[in-house]
């Protein structure tokens, strides 16, 4: 669980691999959430559930549904996303 402030997009882009769609990750891969192509309501809802920009996540299951563990380790929460929704989210693989 991270306690540090979110990284800025500039820093992340400079140091991390290029962003990919969440659906491109395989089971067990970890990543940080980048911006998605979501409507404001959906983005706000996901952020309130814990999927906010720069959060760390681990893919527990790829496909439909895509299950991610937010914050990636002992704490956090487990969120299932429909394939379409997962496909509209971009992540920075770690």
């Amino acid at each position: 669980m991270t306690a540090t402030a979110p990284q800025t997009t500039t820093q992340t882009t400079a140091q991390a691999p290029a962003r990919v769609r969440l659906t491109q990750l395989t089971r067990g891969q970890t990543a940080r959430l980048d911006q998605g192509q979501l409507e404001a309501d959906s983005a706000a809802h996901l952020a309130a559930m814990g999927l906010r920009p720069s959060c760390q996540l681990r893919v527990c299951k790829a496909g439909q549904p895509c299950i991610v563990h937010v914050d990636g380790h002992a704490g956090g929460c487990r969120i299932a996303l429909s394939y379409d929704l997962a496909d509209s989210l971009y992540v920075l693989p770690q």
């Binding site: 959906s42 814990g50 929704l85």
Partner: peptide
Amino acid sequence: SPPMALELPR
């Protein structure tokens, strides 16, 4: 239809 996103309880 809103895209489906659910927290999976333990």
